[in-house]
Amino acid sequence: MLDCDNVPTEIVEHALRMGAQFGRVVVRRGYGNHATLSNKWQDVLVRQAFTPCLQYQYASGKNTADIALALEALEALFDGRADTFCLVTSDSDFSYLCRKLRERGATVCIVGEPKTPDALRNACDQFFEWDRSAKEASEDGEAVEPETPKTGAAKEEISRTDGKPLPKRRPLFLVEAVTLLAGDASEGKVRLDALGQYLKRTDPSFSPNLYGHSGLLNMVKTYDLLTTQREETGGWSVGLAPKTSTATQSS
């Protein structure tokens, strides 16, 4: 649930990635007033398949959108449509809503900016911070891994999709996904099929072919920051590569 009056549009993709680790994001709604939803939020909500929830301000200074968000969150809990909630806001006014949802057995996570007050951070089960200044993007807006390829030739490798050559790319969101999913696992790794399902939940159009790779395993193997392991029970798992100290590298 997006508090469109309180957060920037750029936070949405990060919020979807954070929320997808809990399962399918089935209720997508963005709340705001006419001035908010008629501007750039309109394009984002349409593109990301969110239902816009327009709330007019009946009096100056009254935020009816916040009340609508809170009421519909409780309604979704009580009628059994959801038991996990992801609120995208930095507004501490939602602290009480978080506490009430958790008292009823729901899991609540918050995606907010660094300015988010402690009252809201501590009221949820998990807080995910989004920092605009920390986001690195390429010219087309895609975050890319800053690490250099293992070999110069690897950077120049291409594959073909629909007869057209595509350069092999290594988007940073794949490393972020493994970090998120493997970080909560005792073994420090995530199964490849589970990683693929998570990537599909965050972006239904995701395909390794779009980044020049024939499959997800081949794509993962091009990352210096990731390791793969063949499991005895079958299938593959993915984890973060151990960091090598400067002293070890120089020896």
Results as ranks from 00 to 15, higher is better:
53 C>S: 11
149 P>V: 00
160 R>H: 09
97 L>Y: 14
156 E>K: 13
31 Y>I: 06
138 S>D: 15
41 W>C: 11
162 D>G: 07
117 P>R: 07
119 A>E: 15
117 P>Q: 01
76 A>K: 08
133 S>W: 00
159 S>A: 12
103 E>L: 09
159 S>P: 03
30 G>Q: 03
151 T>N: 05
134 A>G: 11
57 Q>T: 10
125 D>Y: 01
127 F>C: 05
61 G>A: 02
24 R>M: 09
97 L>D: 06
58 Y>N: 08
24 R>Q: 13
126 Q>Y: 05
145 E>P: 00
52 P>Y: 01
30 G>R: 03
118 D>R: 03
132 R>Y: 09
87 L>M: 07
83 D>P: 00
24 R>G: 10
25 V>R: 12
76 A>Y: 14
157 E>G: 07
26 V>E: 15
62 K>H: 12
147 E>R: 09
94 F>K: 00
71 L>P: 02
141 G>W: 11
74 L>Y: 06
155 K>T: 00
111 V>M: 10
149 P>N: 10
117 P>C: 06
166 L>Y: 11
92 S>R: 02
65 A>H: 03
29 R>L: 02
88 V>Y: 05
85 F>Y: 03
158 I>H: 13
49 A>G: 01
95 S>W: 00
105 G>R: 12
65 A>W: 10
158 I>Y: 04
128 F>T: 01
33 N>G: 15
72 E>W: 04
38 S>Q: 14
26 V>S: 14
151 T>I: 04
121 R>C: 08
84 T>A: 15
107 T>Y: 13
79 D>R: 14
157 E>M: 13
27 V>M: 12
115 K>N: 06
165 P>E: 09
44 V>Y: 12
142 E>N: 06
35 A>S: 10
62 K>Y: 07
126 Q>M: 13
62 K>I: 09
166 L>Q: 11
60 S>M: 06
135 K>D: 03
48 Q>W: 14
68 A>E: 06
73 A>D: 08
134 A>I: 01
48 Q>E: 14
62 K>L: 02
130 W>Q: 00
97 L>C: 06
56 Y>Q: 08
108 V>T: 06
32 G>H: 01
50 F>H: 00
160 R>Y: 13
67 I>N: 01
154 A>K: 08
93 D>Y: 05
123 A>D: 03
44 V>D: 04
161 T>H: 14
147 E>M: 05
106 A>Q: 11
48 Q>R: 15
52 P>L: 04
76 A>H: 15
152 G>S: 10
80 G>C: 06
102 R>I: 02
116 T>W: 03
47 R>W: 05
124 C>S: 07
